[in-house]
Simulated assay, not measured.
Amino acid sequence: MPMRRPSSLADRLFWPIVAGGAASLWFGPKALAVAGLAVLALVVHRLGRGGRFRRRVRAIARRHRETLALRRRQESYVDPYGNEILDGWLRERSYFAERTVLPRLEAAGYGDLIEPRWDEILDIVEAASLSVAAPDEAEALPEDGLAYERYCAALLERAGWEARTTKAAGDQGADVVAERDGVRLVVQCKRYAKPVGNGAVQEVVAARSYWSADCAAVVSNAGFTPAARKLAAATDVLLLHHDALAALGARPTGRPR
């Protein structure tokens, strides 16, 4: 974040006080009283900026709370020791704050408050991501890989695709092949307890060629490593959480995450 020099209350009051004092020399006590009221109004307005700043951040985050909640689920996972790993989500949270919240605050004249209240902005974004109840998938989400493939195929069917799982042998990296409106999609499914690496991306790239598919995706209940994201961006592969499958359009697009 660029450094910003906060505009102090004294800076904003300096010229009104000087102007009021000068006017009182010409027009007497009434001019001084008017200047005093103007200074008081500035003080009240300035003291209320913090509350208006917080309300604006909440409004921005609230508009995106569904997406934030989804991204929090996608970028978090529980490791084999039972620890909730939030590294990916924390990066996503900062990305949202920097790219979505910060420009709107600067445009509204709150640029001087961004740096001193950065942690407060992140806390508000965090609260928005937790304000949407997560789907109860404790029982629905299969534990083994083959069942997870069928689960993903069913989600694609719900979105209007004709989806089928492939045979374990000879699938050439495609666990699910789906078609809709003349578009063929190959999917590699990973039911993991840790972020998926770039090996899965390599496999689905090969599957896209083998199945003459139009697009390819790696789907997981967990997040993806930086190496997987980099390779997916270079090879035009979608990286998706299974939550996104039920609404996947016939021309799947989007920046791999």
Rank of each mutant, 00 (worst) to 15 (best):
R93H: 02
R191C: 05
R164I: 05
R208N: 09
A174P: 02
L245H: 03
L185M: 01
K30F: 15
W15V: 15
R63E: 15
W89K: 00
G109A: 04
A168N: 10
R62H: 03
A31R: 04
A228M: 06
R62T: 10
N198G: 04
R4H: 11
W118L: 00
A227D: 10
K30Y: 11
S129Y: 04
R71M: 15
V177W: 00
V201E: 05
E84C: 13
P226F: 02
R56V: 08
E139H: 11
D175E: 12
R62P: 00
H242S: 07
L231A: 00
G48M: 11
V196K: 04
S212Q: 12
L156I: 13
N198E: 09
A33V: 13
D136V: 14
W26Q: 05
L240T: 08
V183M: 08
A233G: 05
S209M: 13
A108E: 06
Y148W: 10
G20K: 03
T67E: 15
R180Y: 13
V204L: 11
P116V: 07
G36L: 01
L239F: 04
L130Y: 11
A138S: 14
E162F: 14
R46P: 02
A107V: 08
A133E: 13
S8M: 13
A250F: 07
S94D: 14
